[in-house]
């Protein structure tokens, strides 16, 4: 039996996806992007009305209109894409993962049909630096603070042969005491709040905390529930955010590498 497996493993091509193909991609997340050239006030109003989590909001002030998109709140329901008449499209390149809360927010001037304060996607330089980081050990402790398990399912996928996070020297560890990074999913429920704090305290300093998913970033669809305390940063300090509901494995890999890259730059 074991020989059958061995034979099969040798015969088959490795399904491993190269890091270049994962970097900054988000296929399967349905997170939106805006094509400013096609943006009109009517579309901006329509998407902000239809968005169920207020990820899209339009603000009008003395004849000027601004459309704001906060990825931390977006659940990828694609309703905005349905009504966006081509101005709202599914995002292709997606560098807004593993970043600070401010960088999850984008703004467009509807009058000027242009993005305000464009934060350019990671340069080729950064990608090279990140590749140079690979191979250094990072221990991650995943913590579910009340998620629906969708985020867990995608984090689990990181260990399958297509993504194989171990190739980057990144391991999931069993104890918070062995961890460098806490990867926290879900809105923090009232019933989990204490356990989340205790787990955070158990991770030795210096520690990185990454909030995962719409729920972890903003509370997602559970924001405002009487049984939920809030997003992860309502309970413990958070260094970076990975949006999506759930984030795809590619977004998780990019996000984790991005956090490492940022941290490397800060040292």
């Amino acid at each position: 039996m074991i020989l059958d497996i061995l034979e099969r493993s040798l015969r088959e091509r490795s399904p491993l996806i190269p890091v270049e193909a994962l970097w900054n991609t988000c296929e399967g997340s349905r997170l939106p992007d805006v094509d400013p050239a096609l943006l009109t006030p009517a579309i901006a109003r329509r998407v902000s009305e239809i968005c169920p989590t207020a990820a899209f909001t339009a603000r009008e002030e003395s004849n000027r209109m601004e459309l704001k998109l906060s990825y931390g709140e977006c659940i990828g329901c694609a309703r905005c894409i349905d009504v966006g008449q081509g101005a709202i499209v599914a995002a292709k390149a997606f560098p807004w993962t593993g970043v600070s809360k401010q960088r999850l927010v984008r703004r467009w001037s509807v009058n000027d049909r242009a993005e305000v304060q464009v934060i350019s996607p990671e340069s080729e330089e950064a990608r090279k630096e990140i590749c140079a980081l690979l191979g250094r050990a990072l221990n991650i402790r995943q913590l579910d603070s009340g998620s629906c398990n969708g985020c867990e399912a995608e984090i689990t996928a990181l260990t399958n042969p297509h993504y194989d996070l171990e190739r980057f020297g990144i391991h999931f560890v069993a104890s918070p005491k062995h961890a460098d990074m806490l990867l926290v999913t879900g809105p923090v429920t009232r019933n989990m709040a204490e356990a989340v704090k205790l787990t955070y305290e158990a991770v030795p300093a210096p520690k990185l905390v990454v909030a995962v998913g719409a729920c972890g970033c903003s509370g997602g669809v559970f924001a405002g529930s009487h049984a939920v305390v809030g997003p992860v940063d309502a309970v413990i300090p958070v260094d970076a955010y990975i949006p999506g509901c759930p984030p795809t494995p590619a977004m998780l890999v990019s996000g984790i590498l991005q956090v490492l890259h940022q941290r490397n730059g800060n040292r």
Binding site: C77, S147, N149, G150, G186, M192, G220, V221, G224, S225
Partner: peptide
């Protein structure tokens, strides 16, 4: 531990878009 008060959240929300809450019961 993961009790999120989901059944309560449904109350008062529009019947046609609340499917997204149902999708977040067990991902």
């Amino acid at each position: 531990y993961t009790h999120k008060g989901t059944e309560k959240l449904f109350e008062g929300s529009p019947a046609d878009s609340s499917v997204m809450l149902a999708e977040s019961v067990s991902g």
